[in-house]
């Protein structure tokens, strides 16, 4: 039997070790956030946020078209991905207990882990090849495919949180099952689903790999779905791997812009979720 003292020493040591692990995780986070803000803040200006990129060799210019391109493609992706994702989630929650439901759920879980670059290839094969052109549509398709499985699982979870009592209350009023699902159950879960949608949009805005050979890039403004389109993430990548200091600076500034966009979406989602928690379930 070990002495009381050495046991306490081990306990203290392990506690310290766990604390160290926490620090190990948080130091890089602090470093990333600090450096993105420090290196990026200097270069951000109204011109940077609204101008086109400068041609190679010239200084100045901005990422206006890339911001517009990211918003455009995430919007297009949401148009298709959000209804399908939520729909699949409602299916899983309402009729997902049979073998088909279990298969769909398993597929959604597994699809959630498919690398985004693979999805890029799929969108390339489905859209770029037949259209003979890189396009915003192809980029958006890739983002939508990435959105659907995560959104489906999140929606299912939100709906399953709705107490059975509410569903029964509605059914006991003689409301048909489908009306009950839409007007009572889905409506009650709506806050949580909106949160999940915002998080999915934030994730989509941060994707780079599936855009590399679908939307490609574009030096100019583009809001046509059948044309190559610039995005903030691909722009950051191109600037970061370039040999020019000026471009590196732009990469930091664009990264700050991206982080602010993603952060805003995340914070809104959190704020919505937090508000719901405080009001509490009935």
């Amino acid at each position: 039997m070990k002495s009381q003292r050495s046991r306490r020493a081990v306990d203290l040591f392990m506690t310290a070790l766990c604390g160290t692990c926490t620090a190990l995780a948080l130091i890089p986070l602090a470093s990333i956030l600090w450096l993105v803000v420090r290196n990026g803040a200097g270069a951000i200006s109204l011109t940077f946020l609204t101008a086109l990129p400068a041609p190679v060799g010239e200084t100045g210019g901005g990422v206006g078209n890339a911001i517009a391109g990211t918003l455009f493609m995430v919007g297009l992706a949401a148009l298709c991905g959000v209804p399908l994702g939520i729909g699949a989630g409602v299916f899983l929650a309402e009729r997902g207990d049979g073998p088909l439901g279990r298969t769909v759920r398993f597929c959604a879980e597994v699809l959630g882990g498919v690398p985004s670059i693979v999805v890029g290839i799929v969108a390339w094969g489905l859209i770029v090849v037949p259209m003979h052109r890189f396009s915003a549509l192809a980029g958006a398709a890739a983002l939508a495919i990435l959105m659907i499985p995560t959104l489906a699982r999140a929606t299912e979870e939100m709906i399953r949180l709705v107490p059975t009592a509410l569903r029964e209350a509605s059914l006991a009023l003689g409301v048909p099952a489908w009306r009950t699902s839409l007007s009572v159950v889905l409506r009650t879960a709506l806050g949580g689903i909106v949160t999940a949608v915002l998080l999915a949009l934030a994730r989509a805005a941060g994707e780079t790999a599936p855009l590399l050979f679908t939307a490609l890039n574009n030096q100019y403004w583009n809001l046509r779905p059948d044309q190559p389109t610039s995005s903030l993430t691909v722009q950051i990548y191109n600037y970061a791997i370039s040999p020019y200091d000026d471009w590196h600076q732009k990469a930091w500034a664009a990264a700050l812009t991206l982080l602010l966009m993603v952060g805003l979406l995340n914070l809104t989602a959190r704020w919505l979720a937090g508000g719901r928690m405080q009001r509490g379930p009935a």
Binding site: S170, A172, L173, G174, L190, A282
Partner: peptide
């Protein structure tokens, strides 16, 4: 269920609806 109504053990008002909407829920949803 429209002819045989039911009240449950715990109050289960619809949390997303107002007082008015709760009372009229059965009528509106039907």
């Amino acid at each position: 269920r429209r002819r045989v109504g039911m009240v449950f053990q715990r109050p289960n008002v619809f949390p997303t609806m107002s007082i008015r909407e709760n009372v009229l829920a059965g009528l509106r949803l039907n």
